[in-house]
């Protein structure tokens, strides 16, 4: 099973590299720029414990007399606080690197989760048709008829309300992933359903059905690989959206707590010092957030155009 999965994954990867895609990638400067930017930002985030001058959540490494220092190039800037410190004496660059880790992790987890839910529902709806399809697609319509931001806020608020206060902070990441993927699956479900409905009438599926292959196996092994391309494009574009949703929820105070801040939480906290002159506490996390989403969107836009047969 595992070996099979690995082989099919390898086949997909080889197909991707062998296609015109890689060539098109190299000829699109924006895509290369986005990819490089993403690798740099994600890389520094992953290596945060090694790279950052201090661990901003280790109280032993924070000095209150170093609070609210401006960035290094300003008059009172001090080494090693490149981007200055916040009013608690935490190095802004370090909080950004650690925050980026959390933002990226939640963004990726939400996209994977939404994809898993959406692909499963889309396969079932497209393959079985009839009332299964009807019920699942009505469900999708309903999700789409409420603004997604609102659903996400309500889901996180409700789950936080249900948990005992002691557990709220510990589970805030999980709740966020749930809230974002609960509204994000519809797009995947619709694309997969559409391609499944085309694929299930083809001879190879019929052949598999005749020799008695189980439905689940047909869906997973035969249909899914042929319905995956649009899903991957949507996933790339949605990664940017998921990171933005997480940041928005955290900014509104229903996301990550101050003890484990994502970029959105950092902006929320920094916003309180907007009028005290410490602009660096809020500006740099905002810039970092914008850069990450920009990088993802540049790659996603290119991928969408490159895989769109109408534009070839």
């Amino acid at each position: 099973m595992a070996a099979e999965a690995r082989r099919s994954l390898g086949a997909v990867l080889r197909a991707i590299v062998a296609s015109d895609l890689f060539w098109s990638f190299r000829r699109t400067p924006m895509a290369v720029f986005g990819a490089v930017l993403f690798v740099v930002l994600a890389g520094t985030a992953v290596l945060a414990p090694v790279l950052s001058p201090q661990n901003p959540y280790d109280l032993a490494q924070i000095f209150i007399d170093k609070a609210e220092l401006p960035p290094i190039w300003a008059k009172d800037g001090e080494w090693p606080f490149l981007l200055g410190t916040d009013p608690q004496g935490r190095d802004v660059l370090s909080t950004i690197l650690y925050g980026t880790r959390i933002s990226l992790l939640i963004g990726l987890a939400s996209v994977l989760c939404a994809m898993a839910i959406g692909v499963t529902i889309g396969l079932a709806a497209g393959y079985f048709g009839g009332w299964v399809d009807n019920v699942l697609m009505r469900l999708a319509d309903t999700v789409l008829s409420i603004p997604t931001l609102l659903v996400a806020i309500l889901v996180s608020a409700v789950f936080k309300g249900l948990l005992p206060p002691g557990l709220r902070d510990a589970f805030s990441g999980v709740i966020l992933v749930g809230a974002i993927s609960l509204t994000g699956w519809v797009q995947y479900a619709r694309t997969v359903r559409a391609s499944t409905m085309v694929e299930r009438r083809k001879e190879y599926v019929l052949a598999a059905q005749i020799i008695g292959v189980a439905s689940r196996r047909i869906m997973r092994r035969h249909i899914l690989p042929n319905a995956l391309t649009p899903v991957l494009v949507a996933a790339t574009l949605n990664l940017g959206l998921a990171i933005l949703s997480e940041a928005t929820l955290s900014f509104l105070g229903v996301g990550m707590p101050v003890t484990k801040p994502s970029l959105g939480t950092l902006i929320r906290v920094g916003n309180q010092y907007l009028f005290s002159g410490s602009w660096w506490v809020v500006v740099f996390p905002a810039v970092q957030l914008g850069l990450i989403v920009l990088a993802v969107n540049l790659v996603g836009d290119w991928l969408r155009d490159a895989l769109n047969p109408r534009l070839r």
Binding site: G240, A247, T248, G264, I267, A286, L289, G290, V293
Partner: peptide, 8 residues
């Protein structure tokens, strides 16, 4: 413009 969140 699409990449920068509105609150930022």
């Amino acid at each position: 413009g699409v990449s920068l969140p509105s609150f930022a």
